[in-house]
Write a protein that binds this DNA or RNA. Structure first.
Lengths: 355, 355
DNA sequence: CGCCATGTTGCATACGGATGCAAATTAGTT
DNA sequence: AACTAATTTGCATCCGTATGCAACATGGCG
């Protein structure tokens, strides 16, 4: 039986374990009999330092658990390795997935994500002023529709900013977005192929670029194909309940073969409402399609035809832009459109491919 | 036709607008003929400075758009106003909502959230080492089940750490969690009241504290009530598809009146599978309940009885702990249990209350 | 009017690491 | 061996703000 002594009070150096100050490069240097610069260089890839010295320092640093203080480093390099991520809506399941992939990709190249969760009502400038005070290296704005272009320009002044899924031209803001018009047209074509002729569009937030592009693309293509636009619901928000409401309005008129909802959450609400409130069968009585391809769209219950946003590619492109010459971004805003992919599922009568 | 001149090179003051260095306190001070300390004090609430001087400085600062450099401030105060938020799963809809509320509450008291998105496979210590280098003021860990207690202790050494929905005793880690056992018992009682006698449990990630507590609470209460535990499925994950699979296993045996799924996502998968794969009616043939009360649980299609986690209260408590005397947290880890609320809906035959 | 309490202000330095520059060491060349 | 080139190293200083301390100003009071 092992003797289990009480933790002796004098054994521990007066509770230092709790919050002792972390070691500094100078201390470490003194212990090794080298200069503080040497320590700094040991931790700086490509710095001018002999391989054996570097090794000795790093080895000792690992032993005593020294890590360079990132804050001090930020100050002297005036580079934070922090990317500001501006979000205003994490309710739409599309965004958490995007944010997750984004922050992981950034982490992989040594960048951390500082979250700015913008709330509608309150003072936006105040919330964003932290973006400037914290000296983030770049800003990624994820579909924050409540921010005006000028507010964003102000908040990101002097550092590269990339909007995801929102396009503002004639500013210093770069944009990476899904080709919404292309997707909407593809869905129109798909409706046509599946035999629908009288189709409806349900808008999300009407004034957003995503909505407008999807709407225009769809409506235009519909006309080209000679199909009838039997209804068009203007939207207030991208939500499940808005989708339900819109679906019921459309169903009441009984003149629609297929509904294109501006995104998947709307469409899913629509499907539920059609099936449950008006006993309408999807796809037998009416087709439904959405946009995004959130995980739920693939669930057997919904089996929603949709246009998949190229999330991985969006993330890749954004990270590359940030990793690359960011000063180029400052000089000239770039707008990049990425192609998505039609995912035909049962909600439009398509036979889902084998998994 | 509008004449569209080339952007004149000499017209712009040599591109300064692009990335000019922000002004410093010293510069501002010199322009006003005061000392740099005065500027610093003007921006420090409660600092020793005359009201009129402060006003003059702030006014001028606003005019020339000066803002104190947060990085420099962090260095000298050794306080970052940054809270590290460790997450490993943003797929479960419960977490984005939590993160959103959390980060907003923190923002409201001047704290920003630095996201640490932990990935399973890779080197966890390396991912977490940034927590230490960045000198975050505190760490909030959101149900990161893939991190061991010792890894967490190491990563957060010297700064307060709060786990949400995960309880580890005998460490320096504080915990704020829903009273899972209470919730599970409440659901058992509810099943009983609704007339179920043969009940099943579907686990989430088996080894997590949330799962174990819900499981124990449920199973124990079942026994007390004299009900039969007709099945118990061990789980690999908290996912929709795992829920479907488990539900089918249970339905195959035809000996169960009610299923308690370890969380809502599982339950929702379960409901879909029961209805679609085996033509089982919910609630007519079988009851289903979940845990969390994610938004989808309230959707008419699912109408899922569940136990609502007190998200707002969790957030409030966590923020209070951080806002308050954090050194107290370092001295003695606190474990707080918060009560949730049974939300009886139609999936257990309860009539949903009017909204 | 003189003295002390209170309130303001500036000076100097600290925070911890990065880096230009010069000194010192090593390698390479003839 | 002598000398130049290349590599290492340390010194000193800078990054921009916060703050202890001393100097100074103001006000109250006897």
């Amino acid at each position: 039986m092992r003797k289990q002594g009480l933790p002796s009070l004098q054994g521990e150096p007066s509770g230092e374990a709790l919050s002792r100050k972390p070691m500094t490069a100078r201390e470490l240097a003194r212990m090794l009999g080298v200069s503080q610069s040497a320590v700094s260089r040991a931790f700086t890839p490509g710095a001018s330092i002999a391989a054996d010295l570097r090794e000795r320092i790093l080895k000792y640093a690992a032993e005593v658990d020294y890590q360079p203080n990132a804050i001090a480093s930020m100050l002297s390099k005036s580079r934070t390795n922090i990317i500001g991520i501006v979000v205003s809506d994490m309710q739409n399941p599309f965004y958490p997935g995007l944010i997750e992939k984004l922050s992981r990709s950034l982490q992989r190249i040594g960048l951390q994500s500082l979250l700015f969760n913008i709330t509608k009502g309150s003072n936006l400038e105040e919330q964003l002023s932290a973006l400037r005070r914290y000296n983030v290296d770049a800003v990624i704005v994820i579909s924050a529709t409540i921010l005006s272009g000028s507010t964003l320009s102000w908040a990101t002044e002097g550092r590269p900013a990339i909007l995801i899924n929102r396009v503002i031209e004639d500013t210093n803001l770069s944009c990476v977005a899904c080709n919404n018009a292309e997707g909407a047209r593809a869905l129109a074509d798909h409706f046509y192929q599946q035999g629908a002729r009288r189709v409806a569009y349900v808008a999300g937030l009407s004034h957003t670029t995503t909505n407008r592009e999807r709407q225009n693309g769809f409506v235009t293509r519909i006309a080209e194909l000679g199909m009838t636009l039997s209804a068009q619901i203007e939207g207030q928000e991208y939500s499940y309940y808005a989708g339900r409401k819109a679906a019921l309005e459309i169903a009441a008129k009984k003149s629609t073969d297929a509904i294109f909802f501006a995104n998947d959450i709307l469409a899913i609400g629509g499907i539920d409402a059609l099936r449950e409130e008006v006993g309408c069968r999807v796809p037998d009585d009416i087709f439904v399609a959405g946009f995004d391809d959130i995980p739920m769209a693939g669930w057997p219950h919904y089996n929603l035809t949709t246009f998949r946003q190229p999330v991985d590619e969006i993330v890749r492109v954004v990270v590359e832009m940030i990793e690359g010459d960011t000063s180029a971004l400052l000089r000239a805003a770039t707008i990049i459109r990425l192609s998505g992919e039609l995912v035909a599922r049962r909600s439009t009568g398509a036979e889902p491919k084998a998994q």
